[in-house]
Design a binder for these strands. Structure first.
Lengths: 199, 199
DNA sequence: GCGGTTATGGACGATGTCGTCAAGAACGCA
DNA sequence: TGCGTTCTTGACGACATCGTCCATAACCGC
């Protein structure tokens, strides 16, 4: 029910969605909607908040696990996002669309989206720290800086995907970003056998 | 006059802007607007097209010049964007906002925004090739791939800035991205004196 | 089964929005 | 100045949208 309303906002944006459309999409009467949520803005805040929570939870889920698989998880997280974002049927991230449309006009949305981005960045940071513990990334690097960069790449892929950039390009961007991460200095003996991804 | 209309769309979005608001902003009567442009959508297409042209032209202008200053130009381009995007008074890129709001619903907008992004990417590619000629970047690297990554970072900074990320973080992202670009292999003699940026 | 309570839904008034149109202003020209 | 042409305008009709309200339906304890 909130899902249907969310999808409606997702597809047509906040300003582009009427309460009648939401009533039709959810099957609820307008009186019920106003009674339960107070109004369009409050309803949207509720939906947007839930969505941010889910997005953060998903990132945390997908990026936690053993140190050994930390780099693999990060790669999969970004690669899947690239594939997803380039799908023409993909509506684009609700978080991104909402931030673009409302962040200047709505303090609640603004604070919520910033918090969500920071939480995702924190999840990436934790994964990068795991990578460092596993020897996949230079331990001298600041994982928060790298995480901020990867989050920016993540959001950039979202934006470019929405504009219609093809999957190959988006995957290539991810690969290039990952290839640019600082590796630990190799001792000569290690340079043959250690696990590396093709890039 | 088109400027005032553009600013109105820029601030309140396509769906959130009424023709009455545009009439008020431009000082023109609604009849004149409809007479001159045909309608809301056509007016927006005109404004959006002009804006894309300007954005591409600006990127080309800022990224062309001598090979010696190619890396400097690229750094300035990205750094200025980071500073700009984090300004709370910054409305956010019209290209980004429009892509987020309309690309699924409007073929004209979709094609125009993709074209603009590709043109900017091309400008970055050309600048990176100049960097390679100047010995700032590994000549074995594919400049188009690097350019795609930098464009993604550019768009990501835009998105994060709109969400309220502070200037320091955005600048740091830019620095990290530039630091991750592949450098040419140094001969031992060069490792002391060649020009490098602090990162 | 029944009275009271709560949830529901669509009609309603007020206002906003789109696109049109006829009245009038501005302009060029003799 | 007088006249015809073009441009401009804000009022207007039709419709969309917001948020409210009350008649009705569903639900609950007894």
């Amino acid at each position: 029910m909130l899902i249907a309303a969310r999808d409606q906002f997702w597809t047509t944006g906040y300003a582009g969605t009427s309460m009648d459309a939401i009533a039709a999409a959810t099957g609820l009467g307008k009186g019920s909607l106003y009674g339960a949520f107070g109004g369009k803005r409050e309803l949207f805040h509720r939906i947007f908040g839930d969505h941010c929570d889910e997005a953060v939870q998903l990132a945390n889920h997908r990026l936690s696990g053993s140190d050994e698989q930390a780099l693999e998880r990060l790669t999969a997280y970004l690669m899947d996002h690239a594939a997803f974002s380039s799908d023409p049927r993909h509506r684009g991230c609700l978080l991104a669309k909402t931030t673009a449309e409302l962040t200047e006009h709505d303090e609640v949305v603004s604070a919520r989206s910033l918090g969500a981005f920071q939480a995702v960045q924190q999840a990436i940071t934790a994964d990068l720290e795991a990578c460092q513990r596993n020897g996949d990334i230079d331990p001298a690097a600041d994982p928060r800086q790298l995480a901020a960069l990867l989050l920016a790449v993540h959001r950039g892929i979202e934006a470019l995907g929405k504009a219609g950039t093809d999957e190959g390009t988006l995957r290539s961007i991810t690969e290039t970003a990952l290839a640019g991460l600082p590796r630990p200095a190799l001792s000569p003996a290690e340079s043959a056998g250690s696990p590396r991804r093709s890039a």
